[in-house]
Amino acid sequence: MFISKLKQALICLKAGRVTLAYPYKPSPPPEGFRGKVKVDIDKCIGCAGCANVCPPGAIEVTDFDEGWRRIQFHLTRCISCGRCEEVCPEEAVKLTDEFELSTNTKEDLTVTIEVYMDTCQRCTRCFKPKHPLDKMMVTGFRQ
């Protein structure tokens, strides 16, 4: 019994102090970490493919009859699964390594983008980006 207690004490002493110095020193997550969502407005074509795949339905898409489409990412509900990043055809949605997201107001936890699109003549829903050729100047011609 005493030998067991001695062995346990030895394990503790050998381990020593292992505490990380967070929050006084930053503790960056490894590469490939799935954190906060970031959208590149120049690449987004407003296809809403991300909203279609999102499991918790955290992406809200609203069409306005003047040709604007507003895509809102609600980070309160986001589970950082990365499906939106995987599915985006233009690689506009990326998951950064930001994880320090605590706040006292929920309105801080949204990412809103507005994209100007052409509307359908019958139902006035937005369906294609205004200038597809302009978009190609940003992303480049693909082989």
């Binding site: 980070l75 930001e98 320090e100 006292n104 309105e107």
Partner: peptide, 10 residues
């Protein structure tokens, strides 16, 4: 706190 609401527009 670090996070702020982001609003981007074309």
């Amino acid at each position: 706190k670090k996070v702020v609401a982001e609003y981007l527009k074309e």
